[in-house]
């Protein structure tokens, strides 16, 4: 019983904390987003979840960053509203590498909001006719940042609030792998010593795993709708996941194609082991061979290194455990239903 209670508590915690904890303050966009070297740039910064009017305006600091060593500090910082900040930059005459154009990052350090960063915020183009200005790239390095500790999720451009889906989409796949793994264990058990219980448990866990697969695909499509622009973009990860679910759908068709239940159970157990070993290439090897938008594919960082900070871990891990326990619970109920049906059939 204790684990059912644990599952409910963990899931309630994951849903409440996952949906209610705010995002860190971030920078949504800047205008203008391009400039020439040597010019004076008046920029408006549009923040997200920010409270720019709190604290002392003199303590706010802004940089346009070229790389970890070189940056230009902003001057004449004025707070227009809680989410809008006006700032001026005197841009140096040439780019540090002497190139034609480059992207600069924007860093805002605020006494109460902390540090926020917009990668590739400003496109800067070299103006060959520019008269030399006094500004240079290294006169005001990025240092003495305001570090603010609070309980909030990281702000990421493009995904914004949908970062909360991490607590629901990713645990589905952990739960799916767990359910299919348990199912395979019961299938192996059935092959070594055939008895109805192992077979019914294998079926119950496969059904629950398939349910998590469908939910994982749905939450993934919802996420893709916001982050990739389309719910279904024939991304290799989406395709291979759909195929993996087809492999398991075939399991049920195979079971149903035999007149003798014993034969069906045995061959389904064999196929289950086969299907599980095809799951790894489908979900984790093939998607890495092709271009994909999904994290963990070619060119994309694997999940965990950048996208998961310590605050998120506090919700993410409990959510995984909660969903796995919920899955075991569902599979248990499903197994009992199969058992009762079996007993009822035997009595007829």
């Amino acid at each position: 019983m204790w684990w059912k209670t644990t599952s409910v508590i963990l899931l309630i915690y994951a849903i409440v904390a996952g949906l209610l904890v705010p995002l860190k303050p971030g920078i949504d966009r800047v205008s203008p987003d391009s400039a020439l070297t040597g010019s004076r740039l008046d920029m408006q910064i549009h923040g997200y979840n920010t409270w720019y009017s709190r604290g002392n305006t003199a303590d706010i600091r802004v940089w346009l960053q070229y790389d970890s060593l070189r940056a230009v500090a902003g001057t004449d910082i004025r707070v227009i509203s809680d989410t809008t900040l006006a700032v001026s930059f005197q841009l140096p005459t040439t780019l540090p590498d002497g190139g034609e154009s480059d992207m600069l990052n924007l860093i805002v350090s605020h006494p109460t909001d902390g540090v926020s960063l917009l990668p590739s915020a400003l496109e800067i183009e070299a103006d060959t006719s520019a008269s030399s200005s006094a500004a240079n790239w290294t006169d005001n390095p990025v240092e003495k940042l305001h570090v603010v500790r609070d309980f909030s999720y990281p702000y990421r451009n493009v995904i914004y609030e949908t970062i909360r889906n991490t607590y629901f989409h990713v645990p589905m796949w952990f739960a799916l792998m767990f359910m299919f793994l348990v199912s395979v264990v019961y299938s192996i058990k059935y092959l070594t010593r055939p008895d109805e219980t192992s077979d019914q448990k294998a079926v119950a866990f496969t059904e629950t795993g398939l349910l998590f697969g469908l939910l994982g695909l749905t939450t993934g499509m919802l996420w893709a709708h916001y982050a990739w622009g389309k719910a279904w973009s024939n991304d290799i990860k989406q395709l291979m996941t759909a195929v993996a679910l087809l492999v398991y759908a075939a399991y049920f068709i195979l079971r149903a194609s035999f007149d003798e239940p014993e034969k069906g159970a045995r061959l389904a157990a064999v196929y289950n082991i086969f299907a599980f070993s095809s799951l790894v290439p489908l979900l984790y090897i093939v998607p890495r061979l092709f271009a994909s938008l999904h994290p963990g594919a070619t060119g994309n960082p694997a999940f965990g290194s950048q996208d998961l900070d310590n605050t998120m871990r506090l919700v993410f891990y409990p959510s995984i455990i909660g969903f796995i326990l919920l899955g075991v619970w569902i599979a248990n109920i499903r197994y009992r239903i199969l058992r009762i049906q079996q007993l009822a059939d035997d009595q007829d």
């Binding site: 075939a250 068709i253 195979l254 196929y271 489908l282």
Partner: peptide, 12 residues
Amino acid sequence: LMAILSFPVILP
């Protein structure tokens, strides 16, 4: 059954 079982498995 052969088609159902083999197409998804052979896809990778």
